[in-house]
Amino acid sequence: MGLEVVKVLLKAAAGGLFVLLFAALAEMIAPKRLAGVFSAAPSVALGGMLVTAALSGVSDVRQSALGMTIGAVAFVAYCLVGVPLLKRWGAWKGSSAALGVWLAVAVAGYLVVWP
């Protein structure tokens, strides 16, 4: 249990740092559409996979990468749906509503690929 908590805390710290790194790149870049590319950078994945490899082994990293392929498809759906929702409902409500789309596509895709 203690090791699991340490793992989660290390993943949180590593993920947060990678997010800052890519966010700094995005801040410096224009136009906004190009900067947006870095808002979908593999920051959380890099942090999480490095910690997973160190503490759980490479096999778990491969499994998480397989799951991530479905999450990435759902991320594309989030962006495609998010643009009109932002226009309709504004930033907070629109992006929150798009999260529901991400969740639906991610779970449905997971169940289709690995029933």
């Binding site: 136009p31 906004k32 559409r33 190009l34 900067a35 947006g36 590319v37 870095f38 808002s39 979908a40 950078a41 593999p42 994945a45 991530m68 392929t69 999450g71 990435a72 498809v73 991320f75 594309v76 989030y78 962006c79 495609l80 998010g82 643009v83 932002l86 226009k87 992006s95």
Partner: peptide
Amino acid sequence: RNEARGATFGAVGLF
């Protein structure tokens, strides 16, 4: 919205 459009490209890269 511009940022969200750009993130679509990044999400393709995530896959």
